[in-house]
């Protein structure tokens, strides 16, 4: 992504963004036809392997099943086998992100966010592109922020507020979809699957990134007032 991204935001971009929201929200998670619009449904599951056979009460043969990873493993060997099972989810998620990005989902998000930046975080709309960039790469976000500050498009306070936004949950989209999304496809020892959804986690993280920026904004307001008062006190002390 360049600093001057002049690609148009079309209706298709908004459709891509809406699709992204629905696809990762888990709202359409189902075995019905509309499950085709849900990430975890399409991600599927590994097949089961026969684990053991025993003869139960009244001579009935009972069998237990397990995933390819088996049961009772531990340490590096178990870790490797488990991690191998995470790779397809990571590939699927990043493949989808690439497609959605190509069709302008992020451009649409930028367009929608730009007028909200001042009321939400007290930063100008010009950081819109840097903000979207920072969700994909910390280096892109930080580089663009430095450029904006160097060109006096951001005041010191705005720069620090925006930095707080980027620092908590850096490169959120790429980092989360390459490892965290996997967490929502797991089941625990009791067979319970992880509640919530990828979409819920992303929404929570984004909200708290904004909250964090505001904490920084209030801290900076407080700190600058304190410095002013101290300066005044010193001045008064001198005048006495």
């Amino acid at each position: 992504m360049s600093a001057h991204d002049d690609q148009k935001v079309t209706l298709g971009s908004y459709v891509a963004l809406a699709f992204a929201v629905v696809f990762f929200s888990g709202l359409l998670k189902s075995t019905e036809w509309y499950g085709v619009f849900d990430f975890t449904t399409l991600n599927g599951a590994f097949g089961k392997l026969l684990n053991g056979i025993s003869t139960g009460a009244e001579g009935v043969v009972e069998s237990t099943a397990t995933t390819y990873r088996g049961t009772g493993g531990s340490g590096a060997l178990d870790g490797f086998l488990f991690a191998l099972g995470l790779v397809p989810t990571c590939m699927f998620a990043l493949g989808m992100i690439n497609v959605l990005e190509h069709y302008g989902a992020l451009r649409a998000a930028r367009k929608l966010l730009t007028p909200l930046l001042r009321p939400l975080m007290g930063v100008p709309g010009t950081v819109g592109l840097a903000l979207i960039g920072s969700l994909q790469s910390t280096d892109v976000g930080a580089g663009m922020t430095k450029d904006l500050a160097d060109n006096d498009e951001l005041t010191d306070k705005e720069k620090n507020t925006f930095t707080a936004f980027q620092f908590s949950g850096g490169a959120l989209i790429v980092n989360f979809f390459s490892s965290g999304a996997i967490l929502f496809t797991l089941t625990d020892a009791a067979g319970q699957s992880v509640p919530g959804s990828i979409g819920l986690a992303v929404a929570i993280m984004f909200i708290f990134k904004v909250v964090g920026a505001n904490i920084m904004r209030f801290y900076l307001n407080f700190a600058s007032k304190k410095t002013e008062t101290e300066a005044e006190t010193r001045l008064e002390a001198r005048n006495v």
């Binding site: 908590s168 949950g169 959120l172 980092n175 989360f176 965290g180 967490l183 929502f184 797991l186 089941t187 625990d188 020892a189 009791a190 319970q192 699957s193 992880v194 509640p195 919530g196 986690a201 929570i204 993280m205 708290f208 990134k209 964090g212």
Partner: peptide, 14 residues
């Protein structure tokens, strides 16, 4: 447990 994972997931990234 499964529920713990959902609680931890956003925190890990934040």
């Amino acid at each position: 447990q499964a529920r713990d994972i959902a609680i931890l997931a956003p925190a890990i990234y934040l």
